[in-house]
Every structure is written in structure tokens, then in C-alpha cells.
Amino acid sequence: MLKREVAKRVFAKEFEAARNLEAPGRGVAPEPLPGGALRAEDRMGEKDSKTPNFLLSPLGLLINRVFVVGVLTEIDNVGEQNDMWKARVVDPTGAFTVYAGQFQPEASIFFSTVEVPAFVALSGKARVFEPEAGSVFVSVRAEEVNVVDEELRNRWVVDTAEQTVERLEAFSKALSSGFSGFELSEYLVKTGVPAELAEGISLALEQEGGRHHGEFLRQLGGALKEGLRALNLDSKDAEGAEADIKEFALELMREMGKGKGVDYGIFLKEAAFRGVPEETVEEAVRSLLAEGQCYEPRIGVIRPVS
């Protein structure tokens, strides 16, 4: 029996930038079993088809399975016989593209009945599709999906931010260490970085040669900060006024939309008419969008979540 792969916590921005690991299985085997040399693959003499596929993120995260909690904003029926569901799940940094087909019956049934938008939790396998050089699609093949509440989504954002910050810190340490390859991963393990991440970081640096990383680190760090602030976890006492405005904006959206989307321009005018300045409402809507409480089904149209 094979060991179950860990469901990694990763934001859409980092996930989308992940690519197939060049040498599958290279050093990515989970912790050796007691009696190391006797794992199943070795008994076969070589890696068989059951060896899991891994993606490698720019920050060195090895991804096979992921666990995501976000806002389900779209579902489409695709595929030649319309037998495949394609969905988008939004987090504070971007969106995951999620597929479920005939071999994911549980997830397919879920998508066939769920109402968008909704907070969902999903676990699935990471896949890369590269139809031609230069165009790469990274997606999740859903295994299990469920409707959840906002509290769980907030917890996922904090959990994922925590693990992403750990990676960012380890990665910065790697960049400033001056080591590379095996030496680097040894150095990282010595400084307390988990072995798998240490290996992933040295592989990521090998593949990219350290270029582009500065920019990516900055962008991801920025997106994380925005996402964490947008959670407004202490809004109940400290920022009562802002919470009230957001509550007002959401109410107005529901009232005007009657279950559908609202034209943003008309929405702003109506708010101003009711005595709330345009900038204040705009700010509230931006933060509602970041929190996932409302979304834009089309450009210029906003719609509240549930």
C-alpha cells in the first residue's frame, strides 16, 4: 500500500507558476520507510506507474495533492460530450482552475448540484497541461469538494499564508546563503528547514537559476499582505465603521440585484443617492471583493456571494 500524498497549502498565485518536476521521483520520495532500501519501487527494480507526479513551485514546494478553500465563482460544462466540469475557485491572490470528469464521480455530482457562488473546500491532484510551447495550464483535478463557511475559508487563508511565509523565509535564506545544489539543501536542513522543502528549493533554483525570483517573491509577499488584511478578522470591535459600510454595500447589492448582478456604475450612484460618498463605497467594495463576499461575474458587474 502506498503512502497517501500530503495535500499542500498553496495560494493560486504560487500554484499557477508551478511546473512539472523535470525528473519525476528524483529525491522526492517521502520520508524513507524504516528499512529504507525496501520500498515498493525498489522491489520492482525501478519506478513504476504508481510513482506520484510532482509539480515544483517557484518557491520549491513539491505539489502532488492540494487542499484549497475559496469562493466557487464559475462552473462550466466542457469536454466533447459535455461530460467534464470546469470550475474556478478564487483565493486572495488569484484563481484555481478545477476539473472533474467521469473518473471523479463524487466531485462531478457536487458540481452538477452546487449553486455559485459559494465557499467550497476541495482536495485534488495538481496537473499541468502544455498544448504548445509557451502556453501552460496548471489545474486541479478535484477529488472531494464540499460547501463550507466563511470562518473555514479565513482559517485556510491564515494557514496557507503561514506555510507560504515559511517557504518565503526559507527561500530568502537560500538566496543569501550563496550555496547551491546538494550543499544548499544540506545547509537548509541544518538551519531547520524540512528536508522536502530544502530539496525543492535547491531544485527550483537549479531550474530557474535564481532569476525572476526577486520579482516573484515581492509580488507574492504583497498579495499575501493584502489577503491577510482583507480578512478583517478584528473588524467586529476595532473597525466597526468600516464593517458597517461594507454591510450597507452588501445589503444594497442584494436589494438592487434581486439575486442577480448589479451594474457597478448604477450601484455607485444609488449609494451616493443614499448618502454614502463614492470613494467610501468603492473602498468597501474592493475589500468585499478581496474577502470573497462579492465578485465580478463580468467586468463592470458586481454580485454578492449568496
Binding site: 499564508a161 503561514e162 480578512l231
Partner: peptide
């Protein structure tokens, strides 16, 4: 969660 978020920031 709020405490953890502040620490991460």
C-alpha cells in the same frame, strides 16, 4: 486567527 494574521504581517 486575528493574532496569527498580525504575526504573519
Amino acid at each position: 486567527l486575528a493574532v496569527r494574521a498580525v504575526e504573519l504581517l
